[in-house]
Design a protein around this nucleic acid. Structure first.
Lengths: 203, 203, 203, 203
DNA sequence: CATGAATGAGGCTTCATTCAT
DNA sequence: AATGAATGAAGCCTCATTCAT
């Protein structure tokens, strides 16, 4: 989270499915900078410098700075959703599916898409109403996947309360891991996933 | 981008222990605007307008805009800490104390200090390193209170894992309530506190 | 019309009723530069330099560069209209009134408001539709004054054609004087006015 | 600011002697856009889009944007001059020649070369001094033709004043027709020419 | 203490022009 | 000839901060 000196692109993890096209390089750098410094505090010159182009050249690929922000968020949602969908498909029981979901979201938040996921949460207000609307549809599909799995779990008696609220408490707990979880520390992401599941289901 | 019309001060909840001095009025308005629009997107003119003074006059009370941000955060920590301390003093068992803590933090985050608490989390990167250092000491005392209560609970066999990690998962879950909890909805804060405790301790 | 090196404000004629307020100084300089170089080719820094302030300071007095253009045009219309109204009031016969009008418009176009009048004609397309609408109301009142005098002349048998068309031919002839009439030349403005009237009425 | 949707080339009148070579197509589009939006407000991308090529390709035909402007003006002068020369040759008396000239210039200004003629007047200042110099020679030849005919008329007692001044008043009146004359209106160009001649010569 | 005009650095964006393909 | 990505200078405007009144 601490930016230090401005890096070059090769120091930034290769996020999601972004290729080495100019567009992909801009989005990777943007996710990193918007997360580390904040959207407003990141200038288009900062961004261009890391990508290795002139600031004016950014505008061949994106019409405005806000479009870049929006594209970063879109990639975050799409890529994370894909990971979650795969996890749900693999799980054989609601418990396995729920663990898979937790594991997938933890991976999205703490892995190579983590910067973009943070930006999605922290810079939401920087978007115009229209762009919020556009992304909201994607976010709803994302949440619907969670709710369907939690609802299954509730029907099997694993949850004693509303699936909505349970998702929200979980969402907060998982999202917050970004603030403290260290990839190279003693704790594996799988272990965090297990503990989170335990917290969710008791025992 | 613009969150509705700019309000006047009397529409903004009377946060914490802030009196009606110029300083108090500025901090209340700042907490509100920084939370609603973000620190960078809030201009000192926006702020002055709500307070009902000219932008130049702000600088008689605070040296810089960043000082205002820092003061908002400081108030948030101090006031929330006081509320938690009181809750712990009232609790007779670790369980009661933990519920009290959860209830107190939920109140801080969703009550009249909620804007300031949000700013504390969302705008942390806007602070210079020195100011972060200054506030970090207060945040550590704040966390220490949580850890001592959780540690007591763990000693009594109520927690099966590290108190640190449990605090972090709880912290995320509680903090995130700001995104979804509605004061005037069907769910009381006490009910949320109970559910959160249940999640933390199982059963 | 040839700008040469950028001048300082004191070299620019003291147009119309503009006082020495910042606003007045900006408008005088703007009329001069917009006329000499064109609106688009005049930068706000050019303008600020002549006024003797920083470019950012312009925006305390006018919200946008376009607002400055609009204000220049407004002053041109209002001031010229006042001059024409006075001339009409003084004339005792349609012939005298018509000569007075011609004389007044020649003065507006070749005198101290000449830059602003040129800008009004040459930079009309630089205005947004809304601002054009706003000024159009003023221009219509301006033209109405001409038409009423020309109509009186026609009723007295001095004109053999439509007043509308006669006004338009006259308007072109008068406006174009800016391209060739030299104040310090051998020809007085009164002489030009006489010749123009003679052209209009024959004999 | 934006004068309706951007058209395609086939909507633009086929000006003067311009063929369908790339050069001719660019000049036709440029005359139209420079007139409708102004030279500075027209981007080379606007221009290329109407022509149906990429903006970079423009520079295979013209070295700079200013060269395009200059070429438009040059075509305007040359074509209009040719039309006037023909009219003079046809006239048998000074009166006929003068009417022919007026008719020819009205046609140039309100016909298919009208855009280019407007550009010649309105965008003169956009040219560098060298290019102005270059075109000035052509304009002088153009004016000389007028003056010789007016001088003949004066010698025959048809004018009571200086031919120079009479040309200037006429030039203004004729040029200004572009602002109000409508081709499809009730008034023919021949009628306007007659009235203008009447104004010039009296009776 | 309050005002509000002025500062001046810096932000986002546009655009004519170039050049490798 | 044509393309279209890239350049880099320059444009308009914003904004925290200062200071004379």
């Amino acid at each position: 989270m601490d930016s230090g000196a401005l890096q070059t692109l090769s120091d930034i993890p290769h996020m999601g499915g972004l290729d080495d096209s100019p567009r992909g390089r801009v989005l990777r750098a943007a996710a990193h900078l918007f997360c580390a410094q904040g959207y407003e505090r990141t200038t288009v010159r900062d961004l261009a410098k890391i990508v290795g182009i002139q600031s004016g050249s950014l505008f061949h690929h994106f019409k405005t700075k806000e479009d870049i922000l929006c594209a970063v968020m879109e990639e975050a949602i799409l890529y994370s959703y894909a990971r979650m969908e795969e996890a749900v498909a693999k799980g054989r029981t609601p418990r396995e599916q729920l663990l898979g979901l937790i594991r997938a979201e933890l991976e999205s938040i703490n892995g190579d898409t983590g910067d973009a996921m943070s930006v999605l949460v922290y810079e939401w207000n920087a978007l115009s109403a229209e762009k919020q609307q556009y992304l909201l549809a994607m976010r709803e599909r994302y949440e619907a996947l969670w709710l369907s799995v939690l609802e299954d779990a509730r029907k099997e008696g694993m949850l004693h309360h509303d699936a909505f609220i349970w998702r929200r408490l979980l969402s907060g707990a998982i999202g917050w891991t970004r603030m403290w979880y260290k990839r190279n520390g003693p704790l594996s992401l799988d272990a965090v996933a297990e503990m989170t599941l335990e917290m969710a289901l008791g025992r």
